[in-house]
């Protein structure tokens, strides 16, 4: 058998290559193309090299949005990971309660994202929303997410936690269910406390699913758009203008395709970089090595 005759196998890879090209490579190349040009009018463009990159990297509004984004994703992970694990631990292990819990918990995941924004917008409205009106009129606590930045943040966080903690809980639950009974029995015989059992059996055994949950929640929360856009539109002021909201403002509302393209690529690299770092770190933690 000659080595060259095997090259026909490349044909089998072709369909995948075409699909990936259309779904990822071509759009990415288009964005790269925009990011190095100044498009003055259709058909009239000037090559500007790295000018847009330099401009966007120096843009203080982008810096603000970036720190806001990190704060948001950090809070999301800090709240959702432990909460999801707690919910998973509290869920029943057998009987009819399992299905009831699973369906109830999964409900927020089934709702379209902009609908979630709408639900929480109405829920927290100070005049007619159950939560908003309840806080203001019955409890006497002034709460208005359309006027007060802190209230806006609280509302966005509550919405995010309500929407996505179920994902962490479901993954953690699946990880817990996969632990063979013998581990718990051995722990009992070894006289381990509930906390030790959690620390030395449940948590290490859940490592795989929790890594996935962590990365998914980091990426998704870092890219969040629809829900805060519907809920606050980035306001009040710029207090909830996350990276994606700012990007849409530049690229679609102001139609600055060059800076928008450069911004997109910077955004993409940041997500990629952090996902990579987290993944490597989590792999090491699981193996008991120092990070």
């Amino acid at each position: 058998m000659e080595k060259w005759s095997n090259n026909k196998a490349w044909l089998l890879v072709l369909p995948v290559f075409v699909i990936v090209a259309f779904s990822a490579i071509i759009p990415l190349m288009t964005v790269i193309n925009y990011s190095v040009q100044d498009i003055l009018a259709p058909g009239q463009k000037v090559f500007v090299g790295t000018e847009w990159y330099r401009e966007m990297l120096g843009d203080y509004r982008l810096h603000e949005a970036l720190w806001r984004q990190f704060l948001f994703s950090g809070l999301v992970l800090l709240i959702e990971m432990p909460l999801g694990i707690l919910i998973a631990l509290a869920m029943p292990k057998k009987g009819w309660g399992v299905s009831v819990c699973l369906v109830t918990i999964a409900l927020p995941l089934l709702i379209p994202w902009n609908t979630i924004g709408t639900i929480w917008f109405i829920f927290t409205r100070p005049d007619i929303g159950l939560l908003g009106a309840g806080m203001n009129n019955w409890l006497g606590i002034a709460f208005d997410h359309t006027a007060n930045p802190l209230d806006a943040w609280i509302t966005v966080m509550m919405m995010e936690v309500w929407h996505w903690t179920p994902l962490v809980a479901l993954l953690a639950y699946a990880g817990l269910r996969a632990i063979p009974e013998a581990y718990y029995q051995a722990a009992r015989i070894d006289g381990a406390s509930a906390w030790s059992t959690f620390l030395f059996i449940q948590l290490p055994k859940m490592r795989g699913v929790l890594t996935i949950a962590f990365l998914l929640r980091f990426m998704d929360s870092f890219l969040i758009y629809a829900e805060p856009f519907v809920l606050t539109g980035g306001g009040p002021g710029n207090s909830t203008t996350f990276l994606s909201i700012y990007l849409v403002k530049i690229a679609l509302l102001q139609f600055d395709l060059g800076p928008g393209g450069a911004f997109s690529l910077i955004y993409f690299v940041i997500v990629l970089l952090f996902s990579f770092i987290f993944y490597q770190a989590l792999q090491r933690v699981g193996k008991g090595e120092k990070v």
């Binding site: 063979p180 009992r188 030395f200 290490p204």
Partner: peptide, 21 residues
């Protein structure tokens, strides 16, 4: 009497270890 209070140890069919230790 609960398992941890009895002076008994058990070795299971599959090795049960504390992976991180």
């Amino acid at each position: 009497l609960r398992a941890e209070k009895r002076n008994i140890a058990q070795v299971f069919q599959f090795p049960v270890l504390y992976d991180t230790m």
